[in-house]
């Protein structure tokens, strides 16, 4: 028996509803985030991620209320993110019952934020999300939902994120996200071998075989997906049974 690979549904939340679109355009309604999260937990999801894609100052208290409600109903760990840029942003979310927070753009702009969050709340609850795109010779980190290229390169940024104390890295390949053609296996393999903290694979899941592939060809400890779960293309219980049949250690 050993540590199990985690399956993590990701819920994008816009004004209190779960939504999904390609690159934030053409958002489809995918239901109530609390009910959806509760249903995923019952079906065997190992963790949940909620991203507040409407994150603005006036919406933040609404999202915190939602987090409070999620924490009351969901009995597995969940991460929240979206627009977090200060220690003050994080405190109410953790107090409302979130287990971890994820930071992305703000950490790229101000890497010292990671140290501050780790000192204030501990490594175990700080997830750094990295969105990157392959440019032919390098993986370039992008911010603002993958729209803005930066001068950072994936592997060196991941090493820095780890050395600043982050507890986990959530890597999304912008090239694979939304394609349903499989995860960025090569990059994920290198990334999860180079860092000593858990890596969550994100972007590209379309079929059960894609999960099998990422868990057999890379040491990532978790895989995340959104729309394929929300719209019932892959059922979590079936996915985990299939993974188990392939010899991958999962919690059944």
């Amino acid at each position: 028996m050993m540590l199990k690979k985690r399956i993590i549904p990701c819920l994008d939340v816009n004004n209190g509803r779960t939504v999904k679109g390609i690159n934030f355009i053409d958002l489809r309604d995918a239901g109530d985030p609390v009910e959806l999260g509760e249903a995923y937990a019952k079906k065997g999801a190992d963790e949940l991620v909620y991203l507040d894609i409407s994150a603005t100052n006036e919406n933040r208290s609404t999202f915190t209320e939602l987090v409070r409600s999620i924490a009351r109903h969901v009995d597995i760990p969940f991460t929240v993110g979206g627009g977090i840029s200060t220690v003050e942003d994080v405190k109410p979310l953790l107090e409302a019952g979130a287990d971890k927070v994820s930071v992305n753009s703000a950490a790229v702009k101000n890497p010292g934020l990671i140290d501050k969050l780790v000192n204030a709340f501990g490594s175990q609850c700080i997830v750094v999300a990295i969105d990157a795109r392959y440019t032919g010779d390098r993986w370039i980190v992008h911010t603002h939902g993958g729209s803005k290229p930066t001068d950072k390169e994936l592997f060196s940024w991941a090493a820095e994120v780890e050395s600043r104390g982050a507890g986990e890295i959530l890597f999304t390949s912008m090239d694979h996200d939304g394609t349903k053609k499989g995860f960025a296996v090569e990059a994920l393999n290198r990334l999860s071998q180079e860092v000593g903290i858990p890596v969550i694979a994100s972007g590209g899941a379309g079929e059960i075989e894609h999960f099998t592939e990422v868990f057999t060809k890379t040491p990532v400890t978790a895989a995340l997906a959104a729309s394929i779960f929300h719209f019932g293309e892959i059922e979590i219980g079936t996915l985990k049974k299939e993974l188990s049949n392939k010899g991958i250690a999962v919690r059944l």
Binding site: M1, M2, L3, K4, R6, D46, S123, Q124, G167, E168, Q193, G196, I197, P198, P219, T221, A222, R251
Partner: peptide, 17 residues
């Protein structure tokens, strides 16, 4: 202390024996 490539923290679901 990792022996091979195990990650620390030990994070996720594991069994009781």
């Amino acid at each position: 202390k990792p022996l091979n490539s195990e990650q620390v923290p030990h994070m996720g679901w594991n069994t009781l024996k």
